[in-house]
Nucleic acid binder design. Structure first.
Lengths: 342, 342
DNA sequence: TTGAAAGCGCTAACAG
DNA sequence: CTGTTAGCGCTTTCAA
C-alpha cells in the first residue's frame, strides 16, 4: 500500500508538495502538479484517512446512532444521511441501540474512540442521554426524530403534536368518542408529543378522556400487539385505535385481524408512518406520513455545517408531516345514526 | 480529550504501561494496573482508535457495501453484520451503490482510504468488480448474496438455483405452462441463478420455454412494474409470474392490481424474499424465504476470522432457503378441467 | 515489571 | 513555489 512518501519519491518532490496538490492548497507549479498526479496514478495511491485524521484531529466520519435499522422508519433516514455524507466526502458509521440506554452509551463511546467528526442520533430518552458527553468533547451532535431536554443541541423533528392532533380530531369529527392509543412511552419525544396531540384533540372537543384507553410502552411490534389486545379486551372497547408508529401499527393490525374484526366496519385504525404495507393491505390505512428522508437530509446537512463552523447558532428544524386519508376509518354510528359531518 | 499521556501522568507511570494494561498485554503489577484504571476513570479517557489504527496499520472497522439499504432484503443483513461486528468490538461503515459500478468503485476506494480491516459486499457484477483491488491490498473481502467469478474470495449465498427450481416446479405441477419471469440481469448472481432454476424446471418437465416470458433488468420496483406490464401485454400472457426479488415483486404486484386482475384467480404470483407485506396483503404471497439475517451473520463471522487469520482457506457458504406456500397460487385450469395433482 | 524512544502516514508551520 | 521539520496518539521493540 503506497504512502505519500512513495508518491513523493516517484514524482521527485517532497511529501508536503504531494500533500499540497492532493488537498488543492496554495500554489503549486502546473508541471509539478502533473508529476504528482502521474505518480499517484501509477502507484494507485490512496491517502490514508487514518493518518490524516490523527494529524488534523478529526476524521471524515459521521456517527449515526439509531434505534434499529430494521425499523423502516429509520431506513430512509439512514439512506438520506448516507447520501449527503457521501456527497460531502464523509463516510458513516452506523450503530443500533434497540432503545437500550446502555447500548446507546457504548455506541457513543465508540464514536468518541473513532474520533468521528460529528454524530447524528435518535436519543433513547429525553434526559440523561449521552449527548452531553459528546458536546463536552466538542463533537457536534444533531438529534433527529426525538429531542433531548436537558441540553441544547441541533435538532430535526417532525411536528408530532400537530399531526397527532389533526389525526385524532378527524376521528372525533367522525363521531368516535372512545379512541384507543398505542404509543411509545412519554420519556421518548415521539411518545410524549403524540400523546399530547391526542389529549389536546379530546380537550378542544370537550370529550372525556378515559386514561384506560391510553397504552404506552416500547415501540416494538410485539408490544403493539400486546397493547392493542389489552385495548380490545376492555369491557367498553375503543371504536378506533391510534397507533403511534409503524411497528406499533403492525402489532395492532395483527391483533385486530386475529380477532376477526373488520377494519373499518368493526373498528377504525390510524397510525403514524406511511410504510409500504399500509397502502398494500386492504383497506389501505390512514396514516400520518412523515418526511423521513428529508429529516435525515436536514440532519446530515446540519451536522456538516456545524463541523465546519462550530459556533453557529443552535438550530431546531421542524418538518411538516402529511395526513394521508385512506380507507381504514369510517364514521362511528351511534343509535343507527351517523354522527359527524364527514 | 484526554490522551494516553494524560493517563500516564496522572497514574504516575509511562505511556507504555498504560497501553499494556489497556490491552491486557504481558505482566503488569496489580497495584500499577489499578492506578491506571483509576486514572482512566477519572479522566474519562477513551483511547483514540485512529492513533491505534495508524500504528498497527489496521482499523477496527468493517466496510459494508450494499446495493441499497432501503431494499428490505439488505436491512436485516446489515443488522446482522452490525450485531456480530459490535460483539467483536468492531464498527461498520455503511455505503450504498445503487447497482452503479462507478459508485461501487468509489465506495471501495473509500474503504481503502479508511484502511478498514475487512469488507463485506454485494458485488454489482460478477466480473470486473473491485474485489480484486481489495484482495491485492490484502484487505479481506467476503461477498454476500452474490458472488464474483473472476477471483477467489470468501462468499455467502443462498441456494438460488435450487429454490427457484423448486418454486417453478411447483407451478408446473399445478398445471401452469406459461410462467413469466421478472428477474435481475444475468450479470448479477441472483439474476443468473434464479433464471437457471427456472430453466431447469422447464427442462426437467419437458416444457417448452418461451423466452418472451423472461424479462430481466435492474432489480428495482419501478422496473418490476414495467417488466410485469410487458408480460401482461403479451398476446398470450402468462398464467403465473415469478418475481425474482422483493422489489420486483412489489412492482409486479402493483402492475397486476392496477389492471384489476385478481390473484390467484386470474394470475398466480410467486416471488423471492419473505417481506412483511407479502404476508399482510390478501391473498398472502407464496415466497422463497431467504435466511437474510443468517447470511449477514455468517459473512461477518467469516470476515472477522479472516482478519485474524489471513491465510485460512477460502470458504464458500451456501445457506438453505425455505419455500413458504401461501395463497397466491392456484392450479391452472385448462378446458374447464384442473390439471396437476396438488 | 516498567520506561525510553522510535515511528505509523500525514499536515502545517516555517524557511528558503 | 517547494522542502525541512515537528508532531498528532498510539504500540512496540529494546533496555533496564
Amino acid at each position: 500500500l503506497a504512502t505519500i512518501g512513495d508518491v513523493a519519491d516517484l514524482a521527485g518532490v517532497s511529501n508536503s508538495t504531494v500533500s499540497r496538490v492532493l488537498n488543492n492548497k496554495e500554489y503549486v507549479k502546473e508541471s509539478t502538479r502533473n508529476k504528482v498526479y502521474d505518480a499517484v496514478e501509477k502507484l494507485g495511491y490512496k491517502p490514508s484517512r487514518v493518518a490524516r485524521s490523527l494529524r488534523v484531529n478529526s476524521s471524515q466520519i459521521i456517527g449515526l446512532i439509531i434505534s434499529d435499522i430494521q425499523n423502516p422508519f429509520f431506513t430512509s433516514l439512514v439512506r438520506a444521511v448516507e447520501d449527503v455524507a457521501y456527497a460531502n466526502n464523509h463516510a458513516i458509521i452506523l450503530s443500533n441501540t434497540d432503545e437500550d440506554p446502555q447500548r446507546e452509551q457504548l455506541n457513543v463511546d465508540l464514536m468518541i474512540s473513532e474520533r468521528v467528526a460529528g454524530v447524528i442520533m435518535t436519543p433513547s430518552s429525553e434526559i440523561n442521554c449521552p449527548v452531553q458527553k459528546l458536546l463536552k468533547l466538542d463533537i457536534p451532535v444533531v438529534c433527529v426524530d426525538r429531542q433531548v431536554t436537558d441540553c441544547e443541541t441541533d435538532t430535526v423533528v417532525s411536528n408530532n403534536v400537530a399531526s397527532s392532533f389533526e389525526l385524532i380530531s378527524y376521528l372525533i369529527e367522525l363521531g368516535h368518542r372512545r379512541i384507543g392509543a398505542v404509543l411509545a412511552p412519554s420519556n421518548i419525544t415521539t411518545g410524549r408529543e403524540r400523546l399530547e396531540g391526542y389529549k389536546k384533540a379530546h380537550h378542544e372537543s370537550g370529550i372525556y378522556l378515559d386514561t384506560n384507553l391510553i397504552k404506552q410502552d416500547d415501540p416494538k411490534r410485539r408490544i403493539g400487539y400486546d397493547l392493542a389486545n389489552k385495548l380490545l379486551d376492555l369491557k367498553d372497547p375503543p371504536t378506533a385505535i391510534f397507533a403511534g408508529n409503524n411497528l406499533l401499527a403492525l402489532g395492532t393490525f395483527q391483533a385486530i385481524n386475529e380477532r376477526g374484526l373488520k377494519i373499518p366496519e368493526d373498528i377504525s385504525l390510524v397510525s403514524f408512518d406511511n410504510r409500504e404495507w399500509t397502502q398494500l393491505v386492504s383497506p389501505k390505512i390512514t396514516v400520518v406520513s412523515q418526511p423521513t428522508y428529508e429529516m435525515g437530509k436536514k440532519a446530515a446537512e446540519l451536522v456538516l455545517s456545524r463541523i465546519n463552523n462550530s459556533d453557529s447558532e443552535i438550530t431546531k428544524i421542524t418538518l411538516e408531516s402529511k395526513l394521508l386519508f385512506r380507507d381504514s376509518v369510517k364514521p362511528f354510528v351511534r343509535n343507527k345514526e351517523v354522527v359527524g359531518n364527514n
